[in-house]
Computed example of a mutant assay.
Amino acid sequence: MGFGWKYYFGREENKINLINFLNSLLEGEHVIADLHYANVEEDGEHSSERKVVFDLRCIGDGGEHFLVG
């Protein structure tokens, strides 16, 4: 995420605004009920695969967990 984006949306006091924004983008595919900020890195299974960084761990309204990077 860019600095301005992370500065505003990456703060706990603005979490509900981020949830509302992401829910508007997802348009019913998923409905985020809560999210947790994290800096989670996941490597590929092989050294030739790229690394992925996820910043948000989301909890859907049905209790499912998914990542938004």
Rank of each mutant, 00 (worst) to 15 (best):
D55T: 04
N39K: 14
H36Y: 05
E29H: 11
F54W: 12
D34R: 07
G63Y: 06
L26V: 04
M1W: 06
G10K: 03
V40S: 11
G62Q: 13
Y37V: 01
L22N: 02
H46W: 09
R50Q: 10
V31E: 11
L67I: 03
L18F: 06
G62S: 07
K6Q: 09
K15L: 00
V40A: 09
F66S: 06
E29V: 12
K15T: 00
H36F: 08
F21I: 00
N23A: 04
G2F: 03
L22V: 09
D34P: 02
E29G: 08
M1R: 07
N23M: 09
A33T: 01
I32T: 02
G28K: 10
G44E: 09
F21V: 00
G44W: 03
L56C: 01
D61M: 09
V53L: 13
E27A: 14
E29P: 02
D61Y: 04
G44S: 06
Y8I: 01
K51N: 11
E41Y: 13
N20H: 09
L26M: 13
I16Y: 05
I19V: 13
N14E: 03
D34G: 02
F21Y: 15
D43M: 10
M1G: 14
E29R: 15
H46E: 12
I32F: 03
R11I: 03
D61K: 13
Y8V: 01
D34L: 07
Y7M: 09
D43H: 13
Y8A: 04
F9L: 03
I32R: 01
F3D: 12
